[in-house]
Amino acid sequence: MFAQAPLKSGRGRWETVEVDAILLARGLSKSFRGIQAVDGVNLTVRRGTIHALIGPNGAGKTTCFNLLTKFLNPTKGVITFNGHDITRRSPADVARLGLVRSFQISAVFPQLTVLENVRVALQRKRRDNFAFWRSDRVLKKLDGRAGQLLEEVGLEGQSSHRAADLSYGRKRALELATTLALEPELLLLDEPMAGMAVEEIERTADLIKRSARNRTVLMVEHNLSVVAALSDEITVLARGHVLAEGSYATVSRDERVIASYIGSGHG
């Protein structure tokens, strides 16, 4: 109940101030057999920003992502992307509109090579994907761009390795390269740096920053120093509710945020 008040004042602010919102969620809710995983979440992602979604384990961050990308259907609520209502669209449609996500548990195509992983994303926009009679030599045209993307994440030396043989951190990097291959307008990253070594984290943070120059990023991240360094706007989620919103400075001073983080052992 105590989360009600700030939500209302929050909504008031959104409705009066004109913002260029690329993604809007209103009253987003999802329950799993009576458990309210996401409960009346309002989210406004401004175009061109890096927006972080943080919160303790089980707060509902991944569920939010699943709702926004339509991998789950909300029990209640409305989602708009670039002003279009996408609440009832399919996940593939949403991806085609330019809202592309990564997964919390590393999601690569394990039996494909590193190069093929990226290429299959580049291939999406081709018109001959059902052409079972055509030779795959036509895909060679995509190798150049795929190589560039792999270079950006430092995987150029491993392009012919099977994705299954990569280390966990390298798989995350490959996943990022694959996601960027689609040139999404809005990038949703679910803990892109989980399992990465320190120098990989730096490189990935750098890449996210660079790729955010011409797109919007919404990311879930537990590493608070990364969040502080990268994000323009932060939404804190706890038990399915929005706890606080604003810049890192605002949010990190919020008592309820501090309390919820201490309460769940994040300190």
Binding site: T69, F109, N129, D136
Partner: peptide, 23 residues
Amino acid sequence: HSPFGHVLRAIRDNEARAISLGY
């Protein structure tokens, strides 16, 4: 070994990921 075959193997390996790429 066609463009179709490549998409197919991607779907076999990880369907959710293939959907998230818009397939």
